[in-house]
Measured scan of single mutants.
Amino acid sequence: TFTSYQLEELEKVFQKTHYPDVYAREQLAMRTDLTEARVQVWFQNRRA
Rank of each mutant, 00 (worst) to 15 (best):
Y5P: 04
V22R: 15
T1F: 11
T35R: 03
D21S: 11
Q40W: 09
T35H: 04
L34W: 13
R46L: 02
H18G: 04
V22W: 11
R38P: 01
E8K: 09
M30H: 11
T3K: 06
A37E: 14
Q6I: 04
E8H: 09
D33Q: 13
V41I: 14
A48L: 13
R31H: 05
A37R: 10
T35D: 10
E9R: 03
E26V: 13
D21Q: 04
P20Q: 02
Y23G: 07
L34N: 02
L7D: 04
E36D: 08
F14P: 00
W42H: 01
R25V: 15
V13I: 09
H18D: 05
Q44C: 10
Q44P: 02
A48V: 09
L34H: 01
E11C: 03
Q44R: 08
Y23W: 12
V39S: 09
V41D: 15
Y19C: 08
A37L: 14
R31S: 06
V39M: 10
W42D: 01
A24P: 15
L7H: 07
D33T: 07
Y19V: 04
E11V: 11
H18A: 12
Q40Y: 13
R38H: 09
T35P: 07
N45H: 11
Q44M: 12
E26Y: 13
Q27M: 11
Q27W: 10
A48D: 10
K16I: 14
T35Q: 04
S4F: 09
Y19A: 04
T17R: 04
W42P: 00
Q6A: 05
T32I: 15
Q6K: 01
M30I: 12
H18P: 15
T3L: 07
Y23Q: 13
Q44E: 15
R38N: 15
R46F: 02
K16W: 12
M30A: 11
R38A: 15
D33K: 11
E9T: 04
S4V: 13
W42T: 14
Q15D: 07
Q44S: 11
Q15R: 11
Q40H: 13
P20G: 02
L28R: 13
E26T: 13
H18W: 14
A24W: 07
E36T: 08
M30D: 07
K16L: 13
Y5F: 14
T3G: 03
A24H: 07
H18E: 07
L34K: 01
Q27C: 08
T1H: 12
R46V: 02
T17H: 07
N45M: 14
E8W: 08
T35N: 07
T17L: 05
D33R: 10
H18F: 10
E8S: 10
T35E: 06
D33A: 12
A48I: 11
T1V: 11
N45Q: 14
F43M: 04
E11L: 05
H18L: 05
P20V: 03
A37Y: 12
R38W: 11
L34T: 05
E8F: 09
L10S: 00
A37K: 09
A24S: 08
K16S: 09
E36N: 06
M30Y: 13
T35K: 04
E11Q: 04
K16P: 09
A24R: 05
R25N: 03
M30V: 10
E8I: 10
N45R: 14
Y23E: 10
T35W: 03
T32E: 01
Q6H: 02
Y5R: 09
T3P: 02
F2A: 02
R25M: 15
Y23R: 13
K12L: 08
F14Y: 13
E26M: 14
E9H: 06
L28Q: 00
E26D: 06
R46Y: 02
F2C: 04
F2L: 13
T35V: 04
Q15F: 06
Q15N: 08
T1P: 12
Q40F: 11
F2N: 02
V39L: 08
L34Q: 03
T32L: 15
Q6E: 03
V22P: 09
Y23S: 11
E11W: 04
L10E: 02
R31Q: 08
Y5C: 07
F43E: 00
L10Y: 00
Q40R: 14
Q15K: 10
S4G: 08
E26S: 10
A48M: 13
F43A: 00
T3F: 05
T32N: 03
T17S: 12
W42V: 15
V39E: 00
Q44V: 10
Y5Q: 08
R31T: 09
V41R: 11
V41W: 15
M30P: 00
V22F: 14
V13P: 01
R38Q: 15
R25A: 05
V13M: 14
E36P: 12
R31V: 09
Q6N: 02
R47V: 07
L10G: 00
E9N: 03
E9Q: 09
M30G: 09
R47M: 05
V41P: 01
T35C: 04
L10V: 03
E36Q: 07
W42L: 01
L28N: 00
Q15Y: 07
F43P: 02
P20Y: 04
D21L: 03
Y23F: 13
K16N: 09
F14C: 01
R47F: 03
